[in-house]
Design a protein around this nucleic acid. Sequence first.
DNA 1: TATCAGTTTAGAACGATTCTAATGTATTGA
DNA 2: TCAATACATTAGAATCGTTCTAAACTGATA
Lengths: 130, 130
Amino acid sequence: MKDIKHFLRQNSLRPTKQRVIIANYLFDGVNKHVTAETLSNKLLKMKAEISLATIYNTLHDFYEKGLLKKLMINSERIYFDTNTEHHHHFYSKKDQKLIDINVDMKVSGLPKPPKNKKINKIEVLVHLDN
Amino acid sequence: MKDIKHFLRQNSLRPTKQRVIIANYLFDGVNKHVTAETLSNKLLKMKAEISLATIYNTLHDFYEKGLLKKLMINSERIYFDTNTEHHHHFYSKKDQKLIDINVDMKVSGLPKPPKNKKINKIEVLVHLDN
DNA sequence: TATCAGTTTAGAACGATTCTAATGTATTGA
DNA sequence: TCAATACATTAGAATCGTTCTAAACTGATA
């Protein structure tokens, strides 16, 4: 609790009640993928009623401080990932679920990027059948 | 024109005026990435006023017949790709532009998929900086 | 050419997200 | 410690891409 307050302050975020609750959940050491909706549901189960607007604000605030990653998954929702290291994913469309790939992968045979463009990062998405 | 009508019929799609116009544009031999909005704009420039609802319907109809691919790009929009072969992309967020990668790439170091799951396909998205 | 299933359309509805503006709260510095 | 104020939270309205609705239209068929 104290740690989380410190942690928020260190990231120039006021440790408000809501942010502390959300940060405690998100940064408990277990990497998570959340959307505003799944996070809201989880918080309700934890008896923490926090408005959707605040959840959106908080996710974006955390994202802006680099505490969360936005995922490049096509879906109606925006996914936020507590694992901010560069990594890849398995994706099961059927289950609408993402699974981290935490091993190093190499992509070979990459063509040159277009003129005046530089490669920022490479994302690999492994689609699962079932 | 005749060819496009045939082409539509062969894919169990009635060659209506609107579908013919859209198919003529999309399948002119040059691969394209479109969203409902960019397609609508293009059609307006070609003096073809087709309602947004029809554009959405048509894109989905074509998708369902396998004539278009839906792209897994995070963006507010859904991108459709006239290149239905398996391939990868460069993506410039700044330009909101996709560029096909038409060379074979290999991904090595892939971990085993989760239990009972099979890998369907691997998609590589190369993010560009500028 | 009449019939009818399939198609198009304007506009309403939808669902995720953002905005608004009123209220509340953490920080500050006297 | 407390008042001032800058920042946060909130309910509900607004927005935006997309889908739905139901009425009008059109291509296929007999």
